[in-house]
Design a protein around this nucleic acid. Structure first.
Lengths: 145, 145
DNA sequence: TATTGTTATACTCTATAACTATA
DNA sequence: TATAGTTATAGAGTATAACAATA
């Protein structure tokens, strides 16, 4: 019942801001010929090391069926490779190639600059606070299990 | 060079968390036969009152071409109506119907409960801080102009 | 000529059903 | 029978080109 009718919930704001962020984020990645899904996979592999597709999909929070095409495209770019798991011939271990590792590191630097624009309205301490809160949420929702 | 390779930037976390939030948010809205785009339009109209489609699209941060189908679907549900603008016959003013207004208010309450689940990892003060930071970002990026 | 709204097309993301091969 | 990976399809969100009516 305040000026604007009622207060927007955090969930709405998060989904909404995420969608806006994702847009500029997508444009940034597109300039480097990557989609969000591809980048998230690269980042996750960089953090965790080689993973089976099932576990990888879980961490990226994508259905295991839908990660296949993403991995195909990354493999074609020679950013990842699928290695056979000798102990279980159903499994394939997904790993970053050297080229993939180099790309992730390069993009991390450029992305930091990219964020400046978007986060301008917030001061230094506020950005740190936002980063910390988001990280807490992210880790709880993704690390789980 | 910390444990996990390198630190995730705020932009990445925001896009990522937004995507995760959007997922449960989408499921919640789907239970009430709405998409995210539809809901965002309803919320915006509720805050701002009747708007031309161009300005509405701007506030919702959707391309003006792509809001047409969203408005069509909302009009079919009788949640909004397009009124001719007598002073400029090119324009059509989009307004919430009584039914639409009632729905937005009803969903705002239910959404607040829905968020509990997602925000559980954060304490009361932290949620308030997150809400405040996101609102600042949202308003800067959307109110603009 | 510029602006408001529209139609149509294409790509990404997400969700789902049905399948192959291994265990 | 259960699990790892795959194929194929469909809806929603986003981006873009081309267009009609009006200013």
């Amino acid at each position: 019942m305040d000026g604007l009718g009622y207060e927007q919930g955090t969930g709405f704001l998060l989904a909404r801001m995420g969608s806006l962020t994702a847009r500029s984020w997508t444009a940034f990645l597109a300039a480097h010929d990557l989609t969000q899904g591809q980048y998230t996979v690269l980042v996750t592999l960089n953090e965790r090391g080689p993973l089976g597709q099932r576990r990888l999909a879980e961490l990226v929070a994508v259905d295991a069926r839908n990660i296949v095409a993403v991995l195909d495209s990354l493999a074609q770019k020679e950013l990842i490779e699928r290695r056979p798991d000798e102990t279980d011939r159903r499994r394939r271990l997904v790993a970053l190639t050297d080229k993939g590792t180099a790309l992730v590191r390069d993009l991390a630097d450029k992305a930091a600059q990219e964020q400046e624009e978007f986060l301008k309205p917030l001061g230094r301490n506020e950005r740190a606070a936002l980063n910390r809160l988001l990280r807490r949420l992210y880790e709880t929702h993704v690390e789980g299990s």
